[in-house]
Design a protein around this nucleic acid. Sequence first.
DNA 1: CGGACTGTTGATAGGCTTCAACCGACGTGG
DNA 2: CCACGTCGGTTGAAGCCTATCAACAGTCCG
Lengths: 252, 252
Amino acid sequence: MSSHESCIVRHFSFFSALSDDDKALLAELEDGTTPVRAGTVLWEEHADAHEFCTLKAGWAFSYRNLENGTRQILDIYLPGDIIGLREFAFSQRLAGVQMVEDGEVCFFPHCNLTAIFRKSYMLTSILFAIASRQQVILTERMVNLARRSARQKVAHFLLEMFQRLRQTEANGSESLRLPLSQEILADILGLSPVHISRTFSSLSEDGLVFRDRHVVTMPDLQALKEEAGFDDRYLIENIRPLFDNAETWALN
Amino acid sequence: MSSHESCIVRHFSFFSALSDDDKALLAELEDGTTPVRAGTVLWEEHADAHEFCTLKAGWAFSYRNLENGTRQILDIYLPGDIIGLREFAFSQRLAGVQMVEDGEVCFFPHCNLTAIFRKSYMLTSILFAIASRQQVILTERMVNLARRSARQKVAHFLLEMFQRLRQTEANGSESLRLPLSQEILADILGLSPVHISRTFSSLSEDGLVFRDRHVVTMPDLQALKEEAGFDDRYLIENIRPLFDNAETWALN
DNA sequence: CGGACTGTTGATAGGCTTCAACCGACGTGG
DNA sequence: CCACGTCGGTTGAAGCCTATCAACAGTCCG
């Protein structure tokens, strides 16, 4: 795999090998890169939806603002992710999307996706697999929100991020760049910012998690996984090889 | 639409009109009906996964058992739903599935789904739309779990079920058959069974929800929606008509 | 009639929130 | 270069929401 390959190609290749035709099709999704600054809102809740976008650089998140003034963050997007897939069936946005830090995105219209359904059986299957994986991540997060203590929530989220980043960036260390404020973490985990702070202190007293600015170190991954009830099977191991031979299935 | 039509066809038709070819393809998914008794486990967590199944009659739910002895219910399946879609990309089950009451299911292998990708562009798009809608429902439930009070959780869940049932069963009343025990409700909403009971009492004192066995009545839907922060746009209104003309896109 | 299961009610406890004050890092403008 | 305001994070005190434990009531079914 050349080091020039885009992160979306790398993301797709995680599921199955791609033909050159498929890579060319994907490349079209990354046409017209737009640079965006930290804090930029890519779109607002309830705005009309006609396009997706791929994230080339930087982190982003989707969120909902609630009646009671709080905000819930639904998803964290990392470079290589497709943003807005979840809303494929809807004509309005159900959640806003905002950049965490400076980055680059590429917008593309809905019809580019349906064009993929028409042109490549392989890419269609991978898209379905990506959607499927996203749903599994969501359900795991539901479990996290519903049934775990603050310590577990924080630990589990850190481990999820750690694992997801390992998949697109090769990096063997026990540290993790986490450019998220405690306020954002609170909005992800359904806790108050104050309690996020206390929880980090508590985890750090036990030598499990150290946080210095945006760098998080987890010296004893195994112990942390046990405390968090983290089972990485939902993120890796288990992924089914989609097909034996990876040829683009095109129109005859 | 004939009253003989299967609920899966009705479910798909909700997104877009279907050609006869598409209906025939769908019919294959409902081959070989199996009757199942209440409490039957369709599959266990971590079992090998080679098939999906469609639910023809009865309610079912998927669940995860946690390390700490609690259980989280991830999804409620109603007649017409496809069970296991979420695990398309995985070779092992990530959640168990159990019947709430007596019903009927039809198992079909993964490859039937990929066959659909190959044969019908329309059905592929609808499947994607179904997955998309499922994800939206999940995210709404995440918000519910993370940010709402027990009263709101219960109210919101009831309203979700009410709305979803309206879509497959025409029924104009303000009542709802809800064949779920308070223990199951607790495992859905991340609460204790005891508190579910107290919450129903509290809602009932305010004249918002009455529960008699498995029948729930909500005399003032509007007030309930406001209390719950329930905005039905994520379930209806917003659904995008997929295409203008609904012809099967088959191989040339 | 008895037993199992589901739901109700009361008392107690704990985890997290909220409010408020304070600290340190950073960037800006004088 | 320093003063200052802002933002993110920390710490303490008080209170609320929900869990847990336990006892009891109602219903269904053998």
